[in-house]
């Protein structure tokens, strides 16, 4: 029973409240108007924007490559002149201009076009070194190619009749060689075969080198560039005991010294 009393009391109270509210009624303000629509975006598409267009490197030596890089927004069509043509909105391309070249990029967009340009400067490479003067042979090569040994008879130091032509050719070649190698000196080595005694052969080799030198001086080879040196039998080119080997050792040999 007691619960029924509480419920009744609550009901009464709420009725009372309701009655009081109705008593103080005021007019309600109208809601604010909707915000204005955004400024009327034209129905046309936005204009194209070239955000970058570069050439790297901007200066090249002819024959090298430069790389063009670009990035374009809002474009419907991007083209680069100088024969490149249409390209994608961003990308790169290697170019090999042979002279200074300015690359123009045109980006077309619904709302407008954009244009940019880069220039690649092309320098001419330095000329190569001049070709070596006709592959100049070394003194050693010249001597061994153009100068021949002079051969002697046993225990003799006179230039043989059959060696005079050879020695004359040597003289002509030596004049050229000595003028082309102005600091060179030519050693005229006198050699002997192994049969004579070593001591006497020193003197014999000395005579051989001296008589060759005298001949060369007489036909115009500068004597101060010709140095005699006797090796006697100290430096044989062969050691067989035969006349052919002995003959090879009885010689005047020419060596160029820079």
């Amino acid at each position: 029973m007691r619960n029924r009393h509480i419920a009744t009391a609550l009901l009464a109270a709420s009725l009372l409240l309701f009655a009081a509210g109705c008593k103080k009624k005021t007019p309600v303000a109208p809601p604010p108007p909707p915000p204005p629509p955004p400024p009327t975006v034209v129905e046309k598409a936005p204009a194209a924007v070239i955000s970058s267009f570069t050439a790297e490197p901007s200066t090249i030596v002819r024959g090298e490559a430069s790389t063009l890089r670009w990035s374009v927004a809002n474009a419907t069509e991007v083209t680069i002149d100088n024969g490149i043509g249409a390209v994608s909105a961003s990308g790169s391309r290697q170019v090999y201009p042979t002279s200074n070249t300015t690359y123009r990029m045109t980006a077309k967009g619904g709302g407008g076009d954009a244009v940019a340009a880069v220039t690649v400067a092309v320098t001419t490479p330095p000329p190569p070194p001049p070709p070596p003067p006709a592959a100049k042979a070394s003194l050693e090569e010249r001597m061994s190619r153009e100068i021949q040994d002079i051969f002697f008879d046993y225990d003799k130091s006179e230039v043989r009749e059959d060696s005079r032509a050879t020695l004359q050719r040597n003289a002509d070649a030596l004049k050229t060689i000595l003028s082309e190698f102005p600091s060179a000196v030519v050693s005229i080595e006198g050699h002997c075969d192994e049969r004579g005694s070593a001591e006497y052969n020193l003197g014999l080799g000395d005579r051989r080198s001296a008589s060759v030198r005298e001949f060369l001086i007489q036909v115009g080879v500068p004597g101060d560039r010709l140095k005699p040196i006797s090796y006697g039998k100290e430096k044989p080119v062969c050691t067989e005991e035969s006349e052919s080997c002995w003959q090879r050792n009885r010689r005047a040999h020419f060596v160029g010294v820079q």
Binding site: E199, L202, G203, D206, R207, S209, A210, S230
Partner: peptide, 27 residues
């Protein structure tokens, strides 16, 4: 000289003999 060679001593050791092409033509 182009060649100085084959030295030897005198018995008293004071002098030296040798072969030389000093005079120009031969040893």
């Amino acid at each position: 000289a182009s060649m100085n060679a084959t030295p030897s001593f005198t018995p008293d050791g004071a002098k030296m003999l040798f072969a030389s092409s000093f005079a120009g033509y031969s040893s």
